[in-house]
Design a protein around this nucleic acid. Structure first.
Length: 465
RNA sequence: GGCCCGUUCGUCUAGUGGCCUAGGACGCGAGGUUCUCAUCCUCGAAAUCAUCGGUUCAAAUCCGAUACGGGUCACCA
């Protein structure tokens, strides 16, 4: 996985990580992270660390890469600059690449002219390919800015076999004389990925299928060096449900971090993500990571692009995982989750055995961790019952009925509540409004039992005074 | 526009020539359990397999064309 630190890590990237790791683990290979920070303009400070944290927080680890090292480092491209220069110059010697001194203005003008001529796709006109050795030497000596471009031979068929799409062929006429080394000395993606993949002994490249049109460029570079090609695996991209567009903030979280913050469990996210573009051919929907590794097959990856990211299904799956957890584990997870917002301190004011009981009641009623807090607010010390003019009389008889209870348990409390309902001809939601402040919520008898007779009556007294 | 790729219920998908009057899951609807709301259980609606043509005794599955959708054509990855 080769993230580019130009912004937030996207949820789709996590799926790519997931597939990469599953494939590597299944075949006892290594999963490697390399940072491709060659775009100095779009570079975002601190993004490298945030991306690595994101991957870590989804529960993944890497065998080689930043933080862990490895035999093929450094794993950050900006620390490998001399390497790219050396290989780019090697390509020049092999006549597979050449110096280009064209200015941005000339290139812009050239493209404009080409567009006016209605060419199929604009391409570099190889102007600098025809420079004499003397001219080049002179320009280099004068420190004129230059780039190094790939010298693409016309009208050759470039074919490769993608593990998902099968054979793909493209005519080299479609390919521009791609810039390999930029004037700032950094490689473009094309040079960087080929050099590093070769040097780091990468055998399998998994990336979004928007890279398919660029793959022939990479193959040309491999061929120029005489290096062995990796296996290419192009993955379908994700899209917003019903929109034919990529994921949008308008519909909810987009970045890997946001999903975690929204209260989704990494396990559920992983399970959901693995089925977006891959299916084992069975009707099983729930997969642990280990099961996924066992079942993962390249041939089961889908060709169909733009897989809809159905947030409703994700939420359902998250609820499923929440329900599957033990109460203790859920409580711990909840506390860890709320530690981020500081609300865990509030929750910790609740007695521990009491909190466990509350979590148990809430477990079937929440689909994300975020939904927990609003649901149990009324358990927090200092929170109050809410009595209005309309519910004054009801609250009074509630007080009477509860007060009469000798043995404080769910049965006796339920009897008391029913008594109140009957005498006022009202329905349960009315009592919910008084006790929880909402029309619905956790079961009332259990809630009151947990609260305790003393606390319940005290709250009623305060509310009625 | 050139090139590349794709097209099964609203959505994710199963399906690799006969088991398909197309199966599962989410969502939706009805019912049951129930102190509200959920959970859980049962049942149901929902795809003329993009369209047209061909191959075949037989096609969602093979072939072709058309339509539609997407990707890509940077000193970005």
């Amino acid at each position: 996985m080769a993230p580019s630190p130009t912004g937030e890590y996207h949820i789709g990237h996590i799926r790519t990580v997931l597939y990469n790791i599953a494939f590597a683990k299944k075949h006892h290979g290594k999963f490697i992270i390399r940072i491709e920070d060659t775009d100095r303009v779009r570079l975002v400070e601190g993004a490298i660390d945030r991306i690595l944290d994101d991957i870590r927080d989804y529960g993944f680890s890497w065998d080689e890469g930043p933080r862990v090292g490895g035999d093929f480092g450094p794993y950050i491209q900006s620390e490998r600059l001399p390497l790219y220069k050396k290989y780019a110059e090697e390509l020049i010697e092999k006549k597979a690449a050449y110096y280009c001194f064209c200015t941005a203005e000339r290139l812009a003008q050239m493209r404009e002219t080409q567009r006016a001529q209605k060419v199929a796709s604009t391409k570099y006109d190889k102007h600098c390919l025809h420079l004499s050795t003397e001219e080049i030497e002179k320009k280099l000596a004068a420190k004129e800015p230059y780039v190094i471009r790939l010298n693409v031979q016309p009208n050759k068929i470039i074919s490769f076999t993608d593990a998902v799409f099968g054979q793909i062929s493209i005519n080299s006429n479609e390919i521009d004389d791609q810039i390999l080394l930029k004037s700032d000395g950094f490689p473009t993606y094309h040079l960087g990925v080929v050099v590093d993949d070769h040097l780091m002994e990468i055998t399998h490249v998994m990336r979004g299928n928007d890279w398919i049109p660029s793959t022939p460029k990479h193959i040309l570079i491999y061929e120029a060096f005489g290096w062995e090609l990796p296996t290419y695996i192009h993955l379908p991209n994700l899209k917003e449900l019903g929109a034919d567009k990529k994921l949008s903030k308008r519909h909810g979280p987009v970045s890997a971090r946001e999903f975690l913050d929204a209260g989704y469990l990494s396990k559920a996210l992983i399970n959901f993500l693995m089925l977006l573009g891959w299916n084992p051919g069975t009707e099983q929907e729930i997969y642990s990571f280990d099961e996924f590794i066992k079942s993962f097959e390249l041939t089961k990856i889908h060709k169909t692009d733009l897989v809809a990211f159905d947030r409703q299904k994700l939420t359902w799956m998250n609820g499923f995982y929440i329900r599957e957890m033990s109460v203790e584990a859920l409580t711990r997870t909840l506390l860890t989750y709320y530690a981020k917002s500081g609300e865990d301190k509030e929750l910790k004011k609740i007695d521990e055995t009491m909190l466990l009981k509350i979590v148990q009641l809430a477990q079937s009623r929440i689909n994300t961790l975020k939904e927990f807090y609003p649901l149990v607010r009324h358990f927090l010390p200092g929170s109050q019952f809410i009595v209005s003019k309309d519910t004054m009389e009801i609250a009074r008889s509630l007080q009477n009925e509860l007060d009469r209870i000798r043995i404080w348990n769910t049965d006796s409390i339920l009897d008391a509540l029913r008594e109140v309902l009957k005498s006022h001809s009202i329905r349960m939601p009315v009592l919910y409004t008084i006790i929880t402040g909402q029309e619905r919520g956790l079961p009332l008898p259990e809630s009151l039992e947990i609260l305790g007779k003393e606390e319940a009556l005290s709250r009623l007294r305060i509310a009625l005074s």
